[in-house]
Amino acid sequence: MDSAELSHLFTAEGLRLVDELPPYSSLDPVAQVSALRKAGHPPGLVTAVLTQARLRERAVTKFGDFASRLLYTQAGLEQATRLPIAALHAGRFRAAGVGKVADLGCGLGTDALAIAALDIPVVAVELDEVTAAVAAYNLAAFPHVEVVHGDAETFDLEAAGVDAVYLDPARRSAGSGSTTRLTRPEDYSPSVGFAFGLAAARPVGVKLGPGFDRELIPSEAEAQWVSVDGQLVEMGLWFGALARPGVRRAALVVSGGSSAELTAEADSPDVEVRELGDYLYEPDGAVIRARLIGALAGRLGAGMVSASIAYLTADTLTPTPFARAFRVLERLPAGEGALKKALRERRIGTLEIKKRGIDVDPASLRTRLALKGPESATLVLTRIDGAHAALLVERADV
């Protein structure tokens, strides 16, 4: 969305049309454009409201029923924090007893919204003009929120009376429409160096991508990796009063409205490799990124299937929110020809392929196997004590 579309959208007519449109997936876009144009609406307005309808429908996965109350840009929605996770972020500021928070690089304003909902004053700063205007609309219901169109790195925190800062640096090129991903942390906006530098003077929270280079994590920060319904979505770094005493590594797993967390004072060392047991565990991505596989193994009484491969094995089933559990049914031949024969003998026509530590493309392999039959199965390709292995398994934690 550009400034011209925004000017059309920010009218009584534009906002009314956005709210009146049915869900985007139920629309015939060509017919809807024709109907809106026939009703006398200008082309710019039609484009703007249909874009919002499309983005609002996509936003449901992050904001649920609240999605229909907000406006979006494409780039802003891609980076926006899911509402339940934003609420957890806000809870840290409340627990720390801060008086006023600066959200530097606020994007659409969803984290600022969660903080303001706890009656904490917020000043939200956004460099992109269109995004700042959308944030101002989204935050208009909170009189104790100020939205500033400006540069986060030059904003005067002292003059604003701020005593804590939250940052979600833009990890894509500037703009509110189609953008490109930035790979170097120094190119983020605000830059990572600037964000970390603020932590010397006040409590600071920084949201980053889950694949952020662990070597760049400051030793004084609490690093928390978050997964939602099996998808690894972010890593948060928390400094000062926003960090929890004795916690430097955390894996937060959110699923179906509930959450569980694994924490430690540092990376946990991997446990010993052991013989394959009756059960195989696939740790959640947040546990893997936090390097807490060893801590999880201790809870499960499990060992590694092979060094440096994130599968655990045990003789007994221990339900856990931090891993998927599979019952090992058979160990099949690892060679492709023998594996194909074994699967055909078992009349397996539908196959889910999971792999770790093996250089193979599951989709290509599935095609080459030319499976036929009425049965379905799950195959795990990995290494067991260093050797290639193919395991026929079934879900054991459902």
Rank of each mutant, 00 (worst) to 15 (best):
G277K: 04
E336T: 15
R94Q: 14
E146D: 13
L6N: 04
R69D: 13
G337Q: 14
A302L: 06
L329A: 02
G303F: 11
I288V: 15
E375M: 07
I384H: 09
F155A: 10
T11Y: 03
V398Y: 07
E330N: 12
L392H: 11
D151F: 08
L127M: 09
L77Q: 02
T47C: 00
V398E: 14
E282V: 12
D156T: 10
A39E: 14
V130E: 12
V101N: 05
D267G: 00
S7H: 08
R54C: 03
P121T: 03
A260K: 10
F93C: 02
Q32S: 15
R368P: 00
G150M: 05
E222S: 06
V30Y: 08
A90K: 09
A95F: 01
A199F: 08
Y281M: 12
A170C: 10
R214I: 13
P269V: 06
E78P: 00
V101G: 06
D19L: 05
S259T: 12
T179A: 03
E5M: 14
L9A: 09
R274F: 02
G40C: 07
L70V: 06
T316F: 08
A387D: 14
S376P: 00
I115Q: 09
V206N: 09
A117H: 05
A152I: 08
E5A: 14
H144L: 02
G107C: 12
S364P: 00
A342C: 10
L113R: 15
L9K: 09
R82H: 14
D361S: 14
Q231W: 06
A112Y: 01
P333L: 13
T180K: 15
Y311H: 04
A35I: 03
G209F: 01
V123E: 08
P43M: 04
T320D: 01
G294Q: 08
A307M: 11
R54W: 06
S34A: 15
A48E: 12
